[in-house]
Design a protein around this nucleic acid. Sequence first.
DNA 1: ATGTCCTTTTGGAACGTTCCAGGTTGCAAT
DNA 2: ATTGCAACCTGGAACGTTCCAAAAGGACAT
Lengths: 316, 316
Amino acid sequence: MVTRGEVGVSDEKRDAILKAIDELDYRPNAMARGLVQRQTRILGIMVSDLQNPFFAAVVSGIQERAEERGFRVLITTGDRTPSVEESAIENLLELRVDGLILASPRADDDVIARAGRSVPVVVLNRDTSDDTSDSVTNDNLAGAHLAVEHLVSFGHRRIAFIEGGAGAGARIRHQGYLSAMHDFGLADEILTAEGRHTEEGGYRGAMDLLKLRDLPTAVFASNDLCAIGAMNAFEEAGLSIPEDVSLIGYDNNRMAALRHISLTTIDQPGDDMGRSAVDRLTERIDEDRTEPRHDVVAPSLVVRSTTGPPRFEAKS
Amino acid sequence: MVTRGEVGVSDEKRDAILKAIDELDYRPNAMARGLVQRQTRILGIMVSDLQNPFFAAVVSGIQERAEERGFRVLITTGDRTPSVEESAIENLLELRVDGLILASPRADDDVIARAGRSVPVVVLNRDTSDDTSDSVTNDNLAGAHLAVEHLVSFGHRRIAFIEGGAGAGARIRHQGYLSAMHDFGLADEILTAEGRHTEEGGYRGAMDLLKLRDLPTAVFASNDLCAIGAMNAFEEAGLSIPEDVSLIGYDNNRMAALRHISLTTIDQPGDDMGRSAVDRLTERIDEDRTEPRHDVVAPSLVVRSTTGPPRFEAKS
DNA sequence: ATGTCCTTTTGGAACGTTCCAGGTTGCAAT
DNA sequence: ATTGCAACCTGGAACGTTCCAAAAGGACAT
């Protein structure tokens, strides 16, 4: 009691207690407190892949806003594996976090739904079918459209896509690519290579493209890590970017911004999304909102040095 | 009881309980359990900077080994700020984690010592003066020596160092640079630029070097992030690497390995260090070791494309 | 003296588990 | 029948807090 409100305690007694705290280096037991208060003021966050620098931005946004709102944050990671994710989530739930943020989870829908039954959950960057939890996504459809549009504006027509496997938003970005190609009258040029949201995945996807007789003049990769992998593959094959092939990614993570990489990409404001996620959570925790809310943030194009006009003007 | 050992319970009763668990979606309360057992089987880990990909490797090593040893892991981050770190540590301590790993902490020594009084602590990559906690470091002195040696082997003499500010191991790497320069008879060529363990820091440090009349022929940056920042600065100034200036970093993080960056660097096995940290902790928790232990892992040279011979042979 | 009101102090109960002691069975051996 | 000994069940204490009700003390007016 002394350590918190401090009301209704005489001065002498308080001093005595504070001194004792110091001497014994006492520390309040959060478990005992949480048990009786039935809340912990802790937000749990499960990040699917700590290796992806995009999530560092997300976490930093979450952390900042959570602090403002009087919550602490505990992070757990799922190693891009559904089963590991599941136990990471379980872990946080057993600790009775007051809210849960799942950053690009790959876990099953019903795992997420089950979590949502015990505690407010917000899912980041994955379109969740169930309506028990909130979500914060960027408009992957619009983002993919922006990417294609940018390439088209340079005169590209043969624009390939390296997809992102089970990665967050991967499917929708692919859809966005497909529909944009249609919109620009390039349905015949549609070409999708298999990939992943890792460098390795991008490398493989690009390798597959390199086997084709006619290389596309531009490539849109499902995320930045993937784009960087593709970049490696193209360079290894002796191609120069953007002269021989233009390349665009998605996320705008720190690596993309490195002057040496300087990847043209679609910006997804990770820190903002993290902040929104915390807001959605605190609305449910402190202000008992109950109807689900699905936020969509607008992506934007960041032009750097990996895109340019195709080497030969289209002649038709 | 049913959810754990399952001994001494009749079959019918167990089935009834398991069914009830499922229906109510009950989840054991880790706080209540922790309270009575006086242990949580949770390892707390405080990472000074989630933005640095080196720590992703450390965390992944920790996670892997902790799982093997039957511990769960909770991550917290300090945002490179001592005060934030301190409250992150406090947070974990109030939750009564069974052990604490501090990855490159910038917090004050006495904060760490205080934590060490309540729970086993292992400090990663920082030479801790107090002997209440264990440490796992890489041999920064030897690593720095390797870096200088490599540059000297190409014939470089004017080798500058961009230091890492308050970053982990920064001071010792600087010492290593100084002593290596002495060892190779290059004491007169010693040149240190101010820097940080961030890209920004490296950029600034390199900018300072660029102001000199005589640019050094090689630069050793205190970590990879810093080296990448320096890389940007040099390229912006129209210099090519390694023809005009050789560059070597420290850590061997994922960015350094990107084919596009391809930074020569000193490898510090982050995942191994994470695993060792967990081992040190479990020795104290489960096997009551009490004498402090300080592990030092050997760094190694990774030659990539940012180092080469100086443009003009030294004539003397 | 008695009563009222205010501030401070004291003493449980409760939170959801684990752990242990003591009970209650059932069954075989005496 | 009695004893012994499993196997199983039951009940209560404990963990370290918070929260609330009740008690104790003062100050002041009647």
